[in-house]
Nucleic acid binder design. Structure first.
Lengths: 102, 102
DNA sequence: TTCTTATTTCGTAAATTTACGAAACAAAAG
DNA sequence: CTTTTGTTTCGTAAATTTACGAAATAAGAA
């Protein structure tokens, strides 16, 4: 596809970006987990026990969510405490809400 | 990934399915187009004029949206009139709204 | 210093997605 | 019948995604 960028609005590109982050059930699971356990731990080691994937694969899904801006990791060696990035989460919420409101 | 299905809830799988449909800017564009022109035409030939992709590629994106259940095509030869599938659209809206409400 | 621990990065393989043009299709028009 | 028209399907190629285990990393514990 040529000159991809000019053909889409900023909102269309952001909606597709955030949706891509949610396009895999493991990543939806991770976000659900972080939302439900926001008050407690949220280390990748806690999540891996409930998932049928390798630790390295989980790590890559976490990177993907970080790249989309939906989560952030607070380093607390040797642990990394993950949580939702509320600013971008609200942006995704607003964009998708307006999209579906149409 | 082994035994993928059992590890995720029905909602988690549906959220990832609908999000996957929205994970490409062309498909977001198509949905925007259908929403804005719901009262008029909505043939693929109308959309292709505003997109930098081949007709066959657009056709495949339309199939992807059909497969996810977000649109439907009413055959009116040699045209196909596309529109939003409101039932599934409302389901996607509800699932994502509840997800982001957390 | 060396060990342990939680996690990420690397190398790689398999599967899926995106894309194109050519060919096929289905139905109305000539 | 053949032609035209809008669209999809096919064959294929390139790019991206998902996955794994091994190795690397970083920092506290021994």
């Amino acid at each position: 596809m040529r000159k991809k960028k000019e053909y889409f609005t900023e909102n269309q590109r952001k909606i597709s970006m955030y949706s891509k982050a949610l396009s895999n059930p493991v990543r939806v699971f991770i976000l659900d987990f972080l939302l439900k356990n926001a008050s407690t731990c949220c280390y990748s080691g806690d999540m891996i026990e409930e998932l049928p994937i390798a630790r390295s694969t989980l790590s890559e899904h976490l990177s993907e969510l970080k790249r989309a801006g939906l989560i952030q990791g607070e380093i607390n060696p040797p642990y990394i405490k993950y949580c939702i990035n509320r600013e971008n989460w609200e942006e995704a919420k607003r964009l998708l809400s307006n999209f579906f409101k149409q």
